[in-house]
């Protein structure tokens, strides 16, 4: 051991530099976080860390200065040279190399296929499904719904193809969790929310955490949706396309705008236990939800009936009670044709 080892190990700038380089790679493990926090609790270390992080950030501005561009070119050149010399050594063992390459190719193709094909979770009429995903996230699927799941190293992409699903997202800040529904994208980290496609609208209800809603137009960068209307108890708690817990965002497909209202978190999740709760919703949306549980789907015969706003609690699958309840209170009646029942407005 050299005599100065101890003093080098206790140099806050050296230690701060080591932490900085680890932080630049992404999240620390829980154990490393604890170590880092303990280390940073010493004021001298905290100062050193700020200095190092400040220098790291200042380097950003140098990256395009002429001198730095020279250094970058040199660095890339030596990187290439090192790679090239390894390559030459490898080609000397040509046969082994070809065999290895073939093996690698097989693995690559297999991995690629796995990555390309999303996992599909689907429910039929009247079915509900709970899915635990590989990262610990959970999906709860309503009846007649489908979610495609595609996990990559740097992101978790899901698509709600139809129906409704509730997501419990395992925290992984390095892999954003996105749910695409129709032409909208919900971006989340560690959080709980539901997404539903119903009556040409995307509904997002946030239970915990925070999510952002973006538009997903072909060939364009996702843009935050514009919130036109916001009803919140204590003024705007969140700005723009970010939802606060207890809020519901409703966005019509093909539009880049949304409306935010307060959601009843208990009632809105009642479908998970087989109850459908409607609060001032169109008959069209309510019928679409009832139909997820109906062997013979109900129809809505005309636009006037479709637009009637209803409230009430119904058991999922009890279509008759629903029909009875609606026709008893609202100006609609049932017309039967070809074995199917349709709501038509009474003029």
């Amino acid at each position: 051991m050299k005599p100065n080892t101890e003093s080098v190990q206790n140099d806050p700038i050296e230690e701060a530099s080591a932490w900085c380089v680890r932080l630049a790679d992404g999240c620390l493990s829980e154990q490393a976080q604890t170590e880092f926090d303990a280390w940073r609790a010493v004021p001298e270390n905290a100062r050193a860390f700020d200095d190092v992080a400040g220098t790291w950030q200042s380097l950003e501005a140098t990256s395009t200065s002429p001198e730095l561009i020279d250094m970058r070119r040199d660095a890339l050149e030596s990187f290439r040279r090192s790679h090239a010399s390894q390559w030459n050594r490898i080609t000397r063992h040509r046969h082994l190399f070809i065999a290895l390459a073939a093996g690698v190719a097989v693995v690559l193709i297999a991995t690629l296929l796995l990555h390309l094909a999303p996992l599909r979770y689907e429910t039929g009429i009247g079915e509900r499904l709970q899915v635990a995903l590989s990262d610990g996230s959970m999906i709860s699927l309503d009846a007649q719904s489908r979610v495609d799941v595609r996990y990559r190293d740097d992101r978790r992409e899901l698509r709600l193809v139809g129906g409704r699903a509730k997501f419990d997202v395992a925290r992984d800040p390095l892999r954003p969790f996105t749910v695409t529904a129709a032409d909208k994208i919900v971006v989340a980290t560690g959080t709980q929310f539901s997404v539903e496609v119903v009556a040409s609208q995307v509904h997002v209800i946030l239970y915990h955490g925070s999510v952002d809603l973006f538009t997903d137009a072909a060939g364009e960068k996702p843009k935050p949706v514009q919130v036109k209307q916001r009803a919140s108890v204590d003024a705007p708690r969140h700005a723009g396309a970010t939802l606060a817990p207890g809020e519901e965002m409703i966005s019509t497909t093909q539009l880049a705008t949304a409306e935010v209202k307060l959601a009843d978190l208990v009632r809105s999740a009642a479908w998970e236990t087989g109850q459908l709760v409607f609060t001032d919703e169109t008959l069209e949306a309510a019928v679409e939800r009832m139909n997820r549980y109906a062997r013979t789907p109900l129809l809505v015969g005309d636009a006037r009936a479709a637009a009637i706003r209803i409230s009430g609690v119904y058991a999922a699958g009890d279509t008759d009670a629903f029909v009875e309840g609606i026709t008893g209170v609202f100006p609609v009646r049932i017309e039967v044709s070809g074995g199917q029942r349709a709501f038509v407005s009474v003029r």
Binding site: D11, I13, E14, A16, S17, A18, C20, V21, D51, V52, G54, T55, W56, S58, L59
Partner: peptide
């Protein structure tokens, strides 16, 4: 880390 420490000290 060595590079970072050196540059930070100079600054």
């Amino acid at each position: 880390a060595r590079a970072m420490a050196h540059v930070t000290r100079r600054v």
